[in-house]
Write a protein that binds this DNA or RNA. Sequence first.
DNA 1: GATTAGGCTTAG
Length: 751
Amino acid sequence: MPVLEWAGPGSPDQAHLSRIPIAFISTGANCANKIIKGEVVHKGPLVNLNANKFILKAVIQDYDSSYPLCQTPSINVVLLDALAKDFNQAVNQGDVVAASGFTVGKSPTVQKDKLHPFNLLLSGDACIYVFRQTPSASRPSAVIKESSRLSKQVFKRPKTPKYTYVKLGDLKPKCVVNVYGVVVFFKQPFKSRGTDFCSTLKITDQSNQNISCTIFCEKLEDHPKIFQNGDIVRMHRVKTQFYNGSIMLVNTHGFSVVTFDGTVGADVEPRTSSRFPNLEQEDRRTVEQLRSWAASEGLLPAVPSIPLSDAQPKAYFNLTCQLLAKAPVDSTCTLLRVWDGTRCPWSLLNVIVEPDVMEGPSMFSKEREKLIANILVYDNHAEFARQLKPGDFLRIYNLRAIPGSKKVPGLAGSQSAEEDHLAFHLHGGTAYGRGMRVLPESSPDVQQLKRVIEGFLEREDEEIDEVNDSELLEIACTPPESPSVEAAKCSAERRCSHDVQPETLADLKQRDRGRVHHVRVQLSSYEPHRLHQALKLYCSKCTLMQEIPDDEVVASLFSEASKGSESFSPPAWTASGSVEVPGDSLASPNRTLHVHLSSQLVYERKSRELMFLMGSTLEETCRLAAGYRHIVPVRSRGGGLELLDLTAPFLFRGRKRYYGCKRCSQPTLKEPNVEGDAVMDKKVVAEALGVQLMQSVLLMKLELRDATDTLEAFLWRDANHEIKDFPPRGGRPSASSSFNKWRAERRETQR
DNA sequence: GATTAGGCTTAG
């Protein structure tokens, strides 16, 4: 029996089913023709046991406001198979449901969860009715609206549950409550040692009690969205506990939180991930009362953060800024290049990283560089920084300005920071709320920041125009071969010096191919917009151009290759061994990593030169690549070993990856010839493996236009660097595929 | 399926 929607007037307890309060449920009670009704305060994941066998656990809290909230009975509900699947699709946490046709069993978890001593089992003929708050807007497609059983019944829209809030001075131990409070201390969510993220905050209200709260949630979006002290939080279903002699709050089943700006007079805009934040007029009143009380107590800081122009040496401060670019420095440190439109009066530390590891522009105009602060973020924050994108607006908490730092890490390890320079560090750890968060564009502080930045950009544009004009004038006035009066007059053009007559695009297209042309055109578009996306793989043998595969694709090829558990015998020239890698869950069981080394190299004590690796993930391969000169991933197939699909790199060398051409390679597993003093390199390995090595090249596609026609042009040449394990995200394939098409046509016309 | 943290500066 599927999950049925329950909408319209009436309620199931008026039908042939009579409602039984959750408190009365027991194995002795007659539950035939009984219905229970309540709110889903917890919805567990849908677990697939095997083919078409599913289980889902939920907790339903009695839908009866006559109980004090901390005594309202809740019961575990176990749903099986089709019903579990339908429930998973159609019901959300917070929905009100009714259930019939259930059986009652003893709850095996009563000692731990302190919920109802019995649980409900729903399968087969059992039925769940869902009440929808906004039936037209959010009806899930899986929900079947009417059925023979439902059509006879008329249901009543229940009243929205009315929440009561306990003042922080009235908290009693071991109760589940709803509270409001003004934030006086907070930490952004950080990864706990368990499975969840943890938020720590301290709140207060008119009763002048400071109450510590700890929130554990797996998902970041379920955590309170606190931007600064003075923000107001409303929390539903937190439980009170005694710790160190005082009462504190921890979230419990059905927890939800809404945060509001604490500024008197600001809009009462809820910050929440909940689709139905359930905001009543009374909530607005409460927020406004707390705001004016907090203002009178001086709880809202005068400024949310300090601009770069006011940064003082040795001080810790909060910074609101925009991320312009970022780059990993080493495994524990990431560089964030940020600005807030103001200029720090101290000269700032310059951190040098390779341009190709920089995400975002690697250079800015001279004027803008003066406003950019380099921030080194460490440890847990470097990990968080991975998910940031250039353009994001950030608030960085407890940032430290360090004067005259002597050393900076990574590539610049030997680079000494000059005296009197100011370095910005976000140290590891969360002490004093240290951390960062992305602010939404709608936030008033971001709006203010954008105004300052836009003011700078406008001035910069004007200055660039002036610079360009004068540069062009200089070029135009410098006589090339034959100075002409006309060239000197025309200051807005660059001229080339060769003597091929310009022609129109329409004419050019009529001409035979293979000639050199000279055109005067406008650039109407180009791609890619980021240099790293211009990096492609190119086979010099067959001229195939292809995109660097996405890390996700490569990772899936590795995981696919590690699944095969066929028996195999490694080539006779190898020395082999294996390692058991413990799996971290049922879904990822133990794996075996097989390592094959060349016996010859082992004999010559050069075992770190080359390793054939089988059963590893992409991540493990990258990690091992730090300790081996060459790593070749392999898989078992047909009783032997073979290379992975050539979409994946066939060779890892340190952070560099090498790819083979799918068309031109004839992969085989042979021992590379490294006799005597021969040096092993990518070419030796590729040759032994029958792989046609692909080169890395830069390719840009330009869309040219003049009055007569348009034309695609390719700009390409050898890339001066090799492919490293930075993610080639967002590279659009169109440039390489249209390049391939062009080459194919060109070959056709040359025949 | 319980556990996580329980503010209070890194030491680059």
